[in-house]
């Protein structure tokens, strides 16, 4: 059976890891290759490198990093950040990345998805969507809390376009709201559900430029659009959850996951093993991504996998335990 994927994310600036494994034993903690090796050894199913270098001139540094990673790590990896053209995609893929991720460029120029998929195949093209909840104060029922809300499963037919809605909210308030989510039977969530028998479904806006610009695009509609253009996967980040370690936005994950038929990677908010499980089961995600949590060694990939396995969620355990013979040498 297809396993659910656990994907550590490494933030890279000028070819150096700025948020990866915070690991004293590493000789060079800023070296992307060494970081990738550690995650690889710990059972990561895939890696995402997010290049946060501000200038476009440093592309050759990124390409060099990609080559070195590709030469040493034999699991799939995605490179995102700063990819603006199909030629940028090509350079990264030729350097050895398995997939490229586009975010702002896809919104500004959706043809890049189509052209990238045509030239390199859909399986190479990941579209990253940074989404923020539009109506914080009126959170409707979360289908994850028992699946009774039909409205939440469908894109909103009509929605308000209040430019300030959801953006002035205090992140801590958002975090508290989300906090009540992972508990399956919390009375708080039932109360939320009861009070929101209104026509409005929850909705999320798509942000670009590192979260600075609200495009006004509806996240569910945008996800369907990128699928139709040939995207092979969606990397979905909840801006509300990001950095809080209060859990993934399960309702967002579910809404996108139900709306498309390409794999969805949930991101933003992982704090506990239970959060991963919630995104994969109630959220319907195919993969889960985390950065800080692994970076600060609060959890290791294997901890998460053991938790998921105990809950009956299919995961790939490190093969060292499976292969007969040392170092993978055939014994037969």
């Amino acid at each position: 059976m297809l396993a659910k994927r656990i994907i550590p994310c490494l933030d890279v600036k000028d070819g150096r890891v700025v948020k990866g494994i915070n690991f004293v034993d590493l000789i060079d903690a800023g070296d992307p290759v060494e970081q990738a090796r550690v995650y690889d050894r710990e059972g990561a199913d895939e890696l995402v490198f997010l290049d946060i270098t501000a200038t476009h001139e440093a592309r050759d540094i990124v390409e060099n990093m990609v080559r070195r990673v590709a030469d040493t790590v034999f699991i799939p990896f995605t490179v995102g950040g700063g990819i603006r053209t199909v030629e940028d995609m090509r350079a990264i893929l030729l350097a050895g990345a398995d997939k490229v991720s586009v975010n702002s460029a896809a919104v500004r120029n959706p043809e890049i998805i189509q052209e990238g998929a045509r030239r390199f195949g859909s399986q190479c093209i990941v579209v990253a969507i940074d989404a923020r909840r539009r109506q914080i104060a009126e959170r409707p029922a979360d289908p994850a809390q028992g699946g009774r809300s039909v409205s939440a499963l469908h894109p909103p037919a009509k929605r308000e376009r209040s430019p300030s809605a959801g953006h002035s909210a205090n992140p801590e308030d958002i975090a508290r709201t989300l906090r009540s989510e992972p508990g399956m039977e919390s009375s708080a969530s039932r109360a939320t559900e009861a009070r929101t028998d209104k026509p409005e479904a929850p909705a999320w806006d798509v942000f670009i430029s590192g979260g600075r610009i609200n495009t006004g695009l509806d996240a569910v509609e945008w996800a369907q659009k990128v699928e139709s253009l040939g995207a092979g996967e969606i990397l979905l980040t909840s801006m509300d959850g990001d950095g809080t370690q209060e859990g993934y936005d399960v309702a967002l994950t579910r809404a996108i996951s139900d709306a498309v038929n390409i794999p969805v990677i949930a991101s933003g908010g992982a704090g506990r093993p239970e959060d991963f499980a919630a995104a994969l089961t109630n959220g319907g995600a195919d993969a889960v991504l985390a950065a800080s949590l692994f970076h600060f060694r609060q959890l290791q990939v294997l901890d998460v996998k053991q938790h998921l396995q105990a809950r009956g969620i299919p995961v790939r355990m490190p093969e060292e335990t499976m292969l007969s013979g040392p170092e993978g040498v055939p014994t037969s």
Partner: peptide, 27 residues
């Protein structure tokens, strides 16, 4: 979902030198 993307299992049918030492169900 289509495409299938990710880690899936190899369920062995016939022995072959290509699969020597690869356990049934390897990902």
């Amino acid at each position: 979902r289509i495409p299938q993307i990710g880690w899936n299992q190899l369920h062995r049918q016939y022995p072959d030198p290509l699969l020597a030492g690869v356990p049934d169900g390897a990902y």
